[in-house]
Simulated assay, not measured.
Amino acid sequence: MPLSASAPIRPLHLAVSIDRPGVRDAGPYVRAAQLAERGRLDFVTLGDTLGPPRRGESRLDALAVLARVAPATERIGLVPTVTTTRTEPLHLSTALSTLDWVSGGRAGWTVEVSGTEAAARHFGRRAAAPADLWREAAAVADAAAGLWDGCAPRSPQGRPVTVVDATRLLPRAAAARHADVAYVRTGPAPAPGAVRAARDDLHARLRALGRDPGRIVVLASLPVALYAAADAVALAELAGSWWADGVIDGFHFRPRDPDRDLALLVDGTVPVLQHRGLLRSFYPGGTLREHLCLPRPAHPYAAERRPA
């Protein structure tokens, strides 16, 4: 049954991957981000590119690419993947703070670890198990947060948004501690029950740590392949129904064909959701935290700086 056109009680959040394996020119990334911005999506993501490329494939650094995208866009959030087992806290803090400043407060970062023990060791890490890698990721996130909080001048949005893929249990534990946004990945035939269960488990972990589940945005990360307008409408139906049923706070789309799928998403799926009152038609604020309805983190030294 079609969804009503009544105004939503809470916002529906949308993001999209602009990954393009093998592309070494920044131009296609800029155009993809501009298209996603036209659709008023919350943010775009770009995967980690520090690992060795496969034969015949070239890669660019995600942070550097999105720093190039920043001046060519105005409102959309920019979220590169950062592999913490290859990145020191000071470098991470400096690089992301720079992206946040050049974008006017639109930066985030997806926390990742090396995929294998061998890859971690290549970068000088001695972690022997996935749990150790994620404990190290948490330590890097803690250290980087401390550096951000100590920065003067501070980040335009207080602190760049932290994103964690919480599909698996080990990173879900890290997400419960650190994430502002969490992904739950699905396959081509997404099951709302499994996504809801993962979200409920994450919320329970947050409550156990004393965190408010209302302060985290949980997105279903879906692969999409859109071939015609009818596919775009069907995606809007799925997104609208999952959101209305309280399964998830929004979606992170992973296009199979970046050019074809993103265009149909922006020109087909988005207008249907906007027509039904489920998606905004403008950006109400300027920072990524404002897009996501997340509060600006309080400065830990604010109380000390108040005049007597």
Rank of each mutant, 00 (worst) to 15 (best):
P2L: 12
L12K: 01
A15V: 02
V16T: 10
V23A: 13
A26T: 14
G27V: 12
A33E: 12
Q34K: 13
D42M: 13
F43L: 11
V44I: 14
G47M: 06
D48E: 03
D48S: 02
G51L: 04
R68D: 06
A70Y: 01
A70H: 07
P71C: 11
A72H: 15
V79Y: 14
T84Y: 06
T85S: 15
T85R: 11
L90C: 11
T98R: 07
L99A: 09
W101L: 15
W101A: 15
G105C: 14
T116F: 01
R121V: 04
D132L: 01
R135F: 10
V140T: 03
D149P: 00
G150M: 08
Q157A: 13
V161M: 05
T162N: 06
V163H: 00
L169H: 15
L170W: 07
R172S: 09
D180A: 12
A182M: 15
T186P: 13
A198M: 08
D201N: 10
H203V: 09
L209C: 05
D212L: 08
L219V: 03
A220P: 03
A220T: 03
S221I: 08
L222M: 14
L222D: 04
A232K: 01
G240F: 06
I248W: 01
D249P: 00
H252F: 06
D257H: 13
V270M: 12
R276V: 07
L288V: 05
R289E: 05
A298S: 13
